[in-house]
């Protein structure tokens, strides 16, 4: 049972991770003069879009991790609306947090907001897919005994990794190296992406190694 779940999760994670690589490679072919540093925002949105598409496809269409109580259309619609509202709110929330951390207030607001969108995609969107638009459930998941399935644990790990990655990404900014990736917000978006990727990789191994300690209560 364990192996089955972990394998399923690992393959989903592999799909998400490969979508990030595709999102980097495909625009290079389509868009003229595409480069991760030069046309950074294009890259950010292409990554965000592909991760979002894969997540929604995996979790919503395949029905992984989501227990639909009712299957009526109106329920689905209201759920979708609420989800997109939550997503937008989370973008603004991240934007404010990033500004509090010292991002410029007005200039390069678009860049800051793109970082917020990317972070929301890596964290909030997955929460929405896995837990639905319920803040209470989100808060529950992020406590020591709150995880109720391997998906919850993977959510904990990927979210923490993306946020910590973005946090660490702020460190090189003050250094006087004059590298292209020190420009705001490239190091943070790169940090978040690398954090998310490593979270995707770590999660199956982590769960595999700690499967003895992890006792999930049935829902």
């Amino acid at each position: 049972m364990w192996d089955h779940e972990i394998k399923g999760m690992a393959s989903v994670h592999a799909a998400i991770a490969s979508s990030i690589f595709m999102a980097t490679l495909v625009p290079a072919v389509i868009v003229e003069k595409f480069s991760v540093y030069g046309t950074h925002l294009v890259w950010v949105y292409s990554v965000a879009a592909s991760v979002a598409v894969v997540n929604i496809a995996m979790f919503w269409l395949l029905g992984v991790g989501l227990v639909a109580k009712r299957n009526t259309l109106s329920y689905k619609v209201s759920r979708a609306i609420r989800s997109s509202l939550y997503f937008t709110l989370s973008c603004f929330f991240y934007h404010i947090i990033v500004i509090l951390y010292g991002a410029p207030l007005l200039e390069s607001a678009l860049e800051t907001f793109s970082l917020a969108v990317l972070l929301s995609t890596f964290t909030t969107l997955r929460c929405l897919c896995l837990l639905g638009p319920s803040v209470q459930a989100w808060i529950r998941v992020f406590s020591r005994d709150g995880a109720m399935s391997v998906w919850d644990t993977s959510l904990q790990i990927t979210t923490a990794c993306s946020v910590i990655g973005a946090w660490l990404g702020a460190f090189p900014i003050p250094l006087d190296w004059d590298r292209p990736w020190q420009v705001w917000p490239i190091s943070c978006t790169m940090g978040a992406t690398f954090g998310f990727l490593s979270g995707l990789v770590i999660a199956p191994f982590w769960i595999h190694w700690h499967r003895k300690q992890l006792t999930y209560k049935s829902k």
Binding site: Y101, G102, I139, F142, S143, P174
Partner: peptide, 30 residues
């Protein structure tokens, strides 16, 4: 030297991170 020059910002950054850590940690402990 870069961080010493930017010390004001660095201290604020760490202070902010650490104060966010308190509720997150409490929540983690339920």
């Amino acid at each position: 030297d870069s961080y010493v020059i930017a010390e004001g910002r660095v201290a604020t950054f760490l202070l902010l991170s650490l104060s966010f850590y308190i509720p997150l940690h409490l929540n983690w402990d339920g």
